[in-house]
Design a protein around this nucleic acid. Sequence first.
DNA 1: CGGCCATCCTGCACGC
DNA 2: TGCGTGCAGGATGGCC
Length: 265
Amino acid sequence: MPELPEVETVVRGLQTTIVGETIQDIEIPWSKALQPDSAYDSLIGKTIHGVSRRAKFINIELDRGSLVVHLRMTGKLSRLYPEKYVTVILHFQSGNSLFFQDMRKFGRMVYTEDKQEFFAHLGPEPLSDDFSVSLFQDMLKEKNRMIKPLLLDQTFLAGLGNIYVDEALFQAGVHPESFAKLIPKKQSGKLHQAIRHILSESIRAQGTTVVNFSHGENQSGTYQAALQVYGRRGEPCQDCETPIEKIKLGQRGTHFCPRCQKTYR
DNA sequence: CGGCCATCCTGCACGC
DNA sequence: TGCGTGCAGGATGGCC
């Protein structure tokens, strides 16, 4: 499951490989993966001028407009033919190609001429300078919602996924069912720090790569071992040895230590 | 506004 | 062995 750090790693790779390429042709084995329907015509002949990241979106900038990619659960971009689960192939004039592989077919490539508009609904970038402790504390203060689903809401804060939210809440000692506006300043400060720490550390680890969809199976990153609650139901908490619990919250599997994480309600 | 549900997809774990 | 069932999950959209 690619989270923000994995996406960042992919983007850095693409910056050194596909910038300057011109799209000559596109194959679309899974038609839903490339949107809108007119995207094919819009993309032919376009040259890639840069690659950047916004939240978990990969923004491939063209001479006009952008090709925005979201990998969702199982999407991967690769320069080599992956054989299985290929949904879109960009063929470049150079003879090189870029393959979009996605077993679960949730991932999307979207052509947009107005990326500002496309990203307009997203909340702040958790790693940006703008995202200060005081801003975060102000944002929490006005939200009468449980903290876990709130942190997953991309319009509130853009880029956190299920795994890192559980980890950040554990590190901050905040129970996922706490109400945002009731979290004391000290704890929301810790939470802010935990979010940024986890994200930047796993970017440093070359994109975490938490747990594969097959559960517990390592892919490539080194951050897996650093996970303290996610996927550890029943295992002793590393701080107090109380078994880690798993509940469903906002339709998401949610892991936490019932002793170390305090509920504010 | 907030919470809940269904939807999209597929592979895998589990129970019988 | 093989089958059926349920689960996982990012984001969106609909409903109450």
